[in-house]
Design a protein around this nucleic acid. Sequence first.
DNA 1: TTAGATGCAAACGATTTGCGCGGAA
DNA 2: TTCCGCGCAAATCGTTTGCATCTAA
Lengths: 159, 159
Amino acid sequence: MAGHPKHQNSSCQQCGQETPAELLAACRAAGLRRTQLLENVLEVLRTHAEPVKISGLLQARGIRGTCDPATLYRLLQRLETKGLVRRIGLHERAAHFTLHRAHHHDYVVCRECGDVATLKMDCPVEKLENEVGRRTGFREVYHELQFYGVCPKCSARSA
Amino acid sequence: MAGHPKHQNSSCQQCGQETPAELLAACRAAGLRRTQLLENVLEVLRTHAEPVKISGLLQARGIRGTCDPATLYRLLQRLETKGLVRRIGLHERAAHFTLHRAHHHDYVVCRECGDVATLKMDCPVEKLENEVGRRTGFREVYHELQFYGVCPKCSARSA
DNA sequence: TTAGATGCAAACGATTTGCGCGGAA
DNA sequence: TTCCGCGCAAATCGTTTGCATCTAA
């Protein structure tokens, strides 16, 4: 299930290293006000290994019931504009988000149930970003790599 | 503009090689009926280097005015299910489509204007699909790689 | 003749926007 | 005190669905 919260850190050594205080400081530096919602959103994103969607955030402990969806959309927009959060497309209707400064990850998405798994492998593409910029004239290039397939659970079910 | 039709073939040697008749035959083999709309959609996809979205198809020559949006959505669903067309996520609200059997491409997307450019370079990831499957237990793995940045036009405008 | 395609209209889910109020700086 | 962020409600946009009709096979 792409939605259900898994309150766990990735086993990736480079993730979950930023403290809440550091994250908050980065937001303040970007001109955002210190809000309960902001703190809660950062904490949820920080403690999830997989990208989180808005519906997930809306149900998260500390957020559920305390905030209007529109407010959350606006906050995430602000965070994305400031480069603090990254919006990820995973073929679902709903957008997913991760902390922008987190270690880069690639994902495998099940095309039946939508489950998202984080790949623990070196990204083979990171080095190409500069080359792509050079070839196309695009600036500030970053990338997004997803694999799609059928997850073990779903293959089992249809077998 | 991500939407406007560019009736051109890619300079990629391996694309645009399937004839309309071959495509149609593949659809027939998949159990689809030969329809004017089907032929027109295939032709538009075949002659576009970049992925096309539904709003683009709806405005395309030969299609505009002749078909209901719902019908087009249904057709593309059928085509995707049969593996004849591939749905691509490009961070826009609207899904994009390409012919599934076309040579695989990766894209650069402008995060300001949404313009999509096709990368003419060897895909560095294709070989990893099997490995990802082995590591994660996912089956029928394929991938999608996109680069994001600011296109030359948009960087010029903001400068 | 008959299952698959279509048009039309209504439903849906994700996201955005206008507006007036309340709270962080 | 002054903006920024908020809740609420309505509007938008892409997409899906139900149903009666039509048509390719």
